[in-house]
Design a protein around this nucleic acid. Structure first.
Lengths: 129, 129
DNA sequence: ATGAACCTTCCAGTACAGTGGAAGGTCAAG
DNA sequence: CTTGACCTTCCACTGTACTGGAAGGTTCAT
């Protein structure tokens, strides 16, 4: 399978696939006599895994770690469990932070809807913020 | 006031202040005979505004817009109101997205805590993701 | 034989908000 | 007079996940 076909099969671009190879997410593909990359069918599964990992909020660096462990013949299970747990804690923190920010902004916005521009003093930039 | 003193007074760094000037967030400071920047006292307030704007989740580009309007002698009130409203909508969308992602990951994590590594097939990278 | 569609490498750029470091100028204290 | 703290400019780099484009090679159909 050539790179364009693989890109189409996995819903991505040839640019991205070359970028993944360069980033160590894909093992360098075999080459045809022409120099074209020639992918085995299992590449589709590997790229699917990358996409699912991304959808689960893992970074490419984390996905690369998992793939490396798999390549060393080990099962990356406990590592994946840890990564997911970590990601869960991060998400909770992030959501809490955004919720606080949302309340702050909602307050500012409510003030901005109420106060009249005339009450702005010259010395400050904007009394709403 | 020299740049180091202003940095200390506002809880930032000289690097950042020069970066703000270059980015058009601060009007270029007066210079002493030595070439050193010499800030007026109101610079503290302006940098405070930048920080409050950031704390409200505005980007430097948005803060710059507000400051430009103020510099043109206009009151940026309605613009600020719009920016805050927009930011509020963005935040709501972002929080909803993260909440969905959180549930997906919580599910994966629960599976990962339950299933045994032996059930991993060789053909897939990781049955948890 | 020629044009389209595909592939190759390499270099550079995107957005965001800074940070790091080199090479050199200025000022006050000892 | 020199040391140290401070300042100047300029250039490059951080991290994330790609994207764009140039210059050139390959394959296949017409």
């Amino acid at each position: 399978m050539r790179i364009g076909q693989l890109a189409e099969a996995t819903g991505t671009t040839t640019k991205t696939l070359r970028f993944y190879e360069e980033s160590g997410l894909l093992t360098p593909a075999e080459r045809l006599a022409s120099g074209y990359r020639d992918y085995a069918d299992d590449a589709v599964g590997r790229i699917g895994f990358i996409h699912r990992g991304q959808a689960a909020g893992l970074t490419l660096a984390q996905i690369r770690q998992i793939l490396k462990i798999r390549e060393h013949g080990q099962t990356p299970c406990s590592h994946v469990r840890d990564l997911l747990g970590e990601r869960l804690r991060e998400l909770d923190a992030q959501i809490a932070e955004l919720a606080t920010l949302r309340e702050t902004i909602a307050q500012l916005h409510a003030n901005a809807a109420e106060l009249e521009p005339e009450t702005c003093s010259v010395g400050e930039v904007c009394r709403y913020v």
